[in-house]
Design a protein around this nucleic acid. Structure first.
Lengths: 281, 281
DNA sequence: TTGCTCCTCACGTCACGTGAGGTGGC
DNA sequence: TTGCTCCTCACGTCACGTGAGGTGGC
């Protein structure tokens, strides 16, 4: 029979841990002296402790371990718990792997004396409702004209409260500056059912844009020529992270742009991605 | 200029996070209304936020990020931080991988209806001082005789306070029951410099046992025949975990054994391991 | 008798989530 | 005027680590 100090040395755990597990009812001492409160453990309790530590190593919480130890565990539930833990461990593993490759690519770039590219973020993007018109433009000026038209016409038909940011979706699979299939419109904050007529018989319509599980985003400030740098940063980032571009990229105008001052714009560039390995999350 | 709610929706983070980062000085709002306390953000702060989130993704703490953002970062220190983070991420990755394979092997064993083997633990083991005698024994009875002799003779020469657990180290690389190279002795709690003479001219001497970075341990209760089951559990465990046996295994007698009741013993079996992949940690 | 070990609080950790209770702006 | 949004506390999270302050046992 051991006092808590000896037992903790045998087990290579702290006394505090043993007291903690006692408090939680996970591993009550074999005996407790009523006078002094001293805890006394016996040798065979070391295997009880090992069982707890082994379960903890699997990633179970102490609460789960407690349920499992005194619950008599109905086999099925244990299986269920393990399957959940496996999924959790797989996610965590992927996160850690991504983190490691990101760090390594940062070190590599630092050693090569290259720029930071530090502000690329990958996140899930929910779906939203969009009021938009889609067409091919042959020049940047044409796009700018379309933006100007939308900015003028749409607010007359839709209440200001419902109108969100201006957004562009680039549907052209490849970048050809003189023939870009682009969709331009406004995010809608509330459901509105309108069709807005534009010049030359075109119309802006309401449609739903699907959510994207992995969107690489980066904010660009300044003229459109700056876009190359931002695109490059995103490209390096997603490559380092083992992702691949998938689907039309977007530009979200954080400030309502003024067509005469497009060089002063703040835009969030968004690129949908998928994992190299698996098609879906 | 955005209020906190709009800004949080644009950034897909919570208001609480923005207030938290404000409180820490990581991302103060562009403006704060003195009357109402309302926080106002501008579009370009989104990229500041992204920078913070990207650094957080690397595993840096908010405190580190704060130092880094306003510290002007002396390049070298940044490198140092990243190298540390890489090491941390590598360790974490290994831990997660081990966890995952452990969970998977548990599920597999559960599906196959096999036993639990749940109480194997891998841990680091510090070095210690041992008072021991080493010899080849040709039978279990001979070992038992040696234990009896040690239990009788040693306590006469060494104070009880200094004497720790009885331990056996099995030096035979392979298990041959009729010729086991075994070292038997006591862990010493304090430095003692003695040589204890035994029968037939043999001696127990003091020596230092090196620490072991990875020791797979499991407690066995009952007769030595039980040892096979425990050994099997450990073997399955370390295989599932991508480890490999390395060095002499040990048996630590948690209770002072009585040679006439060896079937009632509680022993911790210890097996040194190394990683399959790399020789050292 | 002097150390040594044990005891019970109780705060700290880390990055926020989640109410509680109250107030300004359209 | 009614919602809506914002504000500031302040507690909870998870598994202990780390003192503080005090007491029993050899």
């Amino acid at each position: 029979v051991f006092r808590i100090g000896e037992f903790s040395r045998l087990a290579r755990v702290s006394c505090r841990l043993l007291r903690h597990y006692d408090a939680l009812g996970l591993l009550p001492p074999h005996t407790v002296d009523e006078q002094t409160g001293y805890r006394y453990y016996v040798a065979s309790q070391l295997s009880d402790l090992h069982r707890i530590l082994a379960l903890k190593d699997l990633g179970l919480s102490l609460e789960q371990i407690g349920d499992l130890l005194d619950g008599g565990l109905p086999e099925d539930e244990l299986r269920g718990m393990l399957l959940l833990e496996r999924a959790k461990a797989e996610r965590e593993l992927a996160v850690q792997a991504a983190r490691l490759t990101q760090i390594e690519s940062r070190i590599a770039r630092l050693d090569a004396g290259e720029a930071d590219d530090g502000d690329v973020v990958v996140r899930a993007e929910p779906g939203f409702v969009l009021l938009s018109v889609r067409q091919c433009v042959t020049s940047f000026d044409e796009a700018r004209g379309l933006i100007a038209e939308l900015l003028e016409v749409v607010p007359r038909r839709v209440s200001k409260a419902a109108l969100g940011q201006l957004v562009a979706l680039v549907h052209s699979p490849e970048f050809e500056p003189d023939d870009i299939d682009v969709e331009l419109g406004f995010v809608l904050n509330r459901a509105v059912d309108v069709t807005v007529e534009l010049e030359r018989g075109r119309e802006a319509r309401v449609r739903h844009v699907d959510p994207v599980p992995r969107m690489a985003v980066c904010v660009r400030k300044g003229p459109p020529e700056q876009a190359h740098a931002t695109t490059g940063a995103i490209a390096r980032h997603i490559e380092a992270r083992g992702l691949r571009l998938a689907g039309p990229n977007r530009e979200l105008f954080l400030q309502p742009p003024r067509p005469d001052r497009m060089h002063d714009v703040v835009v969030e560039m968004q690129f949908p991605c998928v994992d190299e390995n698996r098609a879906t999350v």
